[in-house]
Simulated assay, not measured.
Amino acid sequence: MLLTDTHTHLYYETDNEKRIALMQRCKQNDVGRLFLPNVDVFSAAQVFGLAAEYPEICYPMLGLHPCSVKGDWENVLDAIWNTQQGRKIYAIGEIGIDLYWDKTTLPEQVLAFKAQIKKAKELKLPIVIHCREAFNEVFEVLEEERDKDLRGILHCFTGNHEQALKAIDLGFYLGIGGVVTYKNGGLDKFLHEIDLQHIVLETDSPYLSPVPYRGKPNESSYLVYIAEKVAELYQLNIEQVATITTENSKKIFGI
């Protein structure tokens, strides 16, 4: 069995022994592919560092998280692109709009989002979208940018059935994480009505730990609990879920 964590900030763990233990637990739980989203200039070095340390299972992305978008976002974005230095990336992310923490930066967030979509299209890469309390705003941008090159993942999907179908129509996979295991998360009410061909799995570690670790720091090895819950909802075994969602991740990231 091979599970793919399409969204993990495992690089936040800077203690070498703890990081080695995290990776060992991934192996024990059959989590063999880790996709690492960037959030700002500082984290770019961490992303590339972990990818260099574990090149056989870690795949970097580059992008500016909407919560990191300020008035100088263009300069910051240039600095982020400059960190690549010829190294391969597999997506532009995580990018998008977040209106939970700060609504006043919406104009800048939209501009930064569009600029990064443009970059993804130029590089023929998928985008990985962060959307928090901003479905209407994100969908508006995606409708404007819709074309054959627009594709990717709506990370940490927590919307309703209608929003799920809208995302799929726009060419996006749904990133399903720990929320699917929550009693009042809502995803368990309709997710089984969405074809598994449109689903990928993620942890968003160290955030949003699944049951039975809710409230504690998350890690990529816990992806197995998310996969088990998805298997239960679809009335499949976990091996089938692992196979289908990993194949979906390969279609998105090209590896």
Rank of each mutant, 00 (worst) to 15 (best):
I176N: 03
I95F: 08
R214M: 10
L50M: 14
Q197R: 14
Y213L: 14
E133T: 04
I252W: 00
E94M: 05
D78V: 03
A167I: 03
V31G: 04
D15K: 07
Q197N: 15
E140N: 10
F253Q: 07
E13Y: 11
P206F: 05
D15P: 08
R146N: 10
L36G: 12
T105Q: 12
E232A: 03
T245L: 11
F35S: 00
D149E: 15
L233I: 06
C26W: 13
C67T: 12
E53I: 01
K216L: 11
K166M: 06
H7M: 09
I117C: 10
I89E: 01
F139M: 03
N16P: 01
A51W: 08
K183W: 06
T8G: 10
H9W: 11
V180G: 09
G71I: 04
F135A: 14
P60Y: 09
F48A: 06
L150R: 10
L34W: 09
A227E: 12
I176R: 00
E232V: 00
G186S: 12
A44T: 13
Y12S: 04
K121I: 07
L154Y: 09
I199V: 15
V180E: 09
L170H: 06
V31S: 11
A44M: 11
E94P: 13
R33Y: 07
N38Y: 05
L233R: 09
L201S: 08
E232W: 00
I129M: 07
L10G: 03
G215R: 03
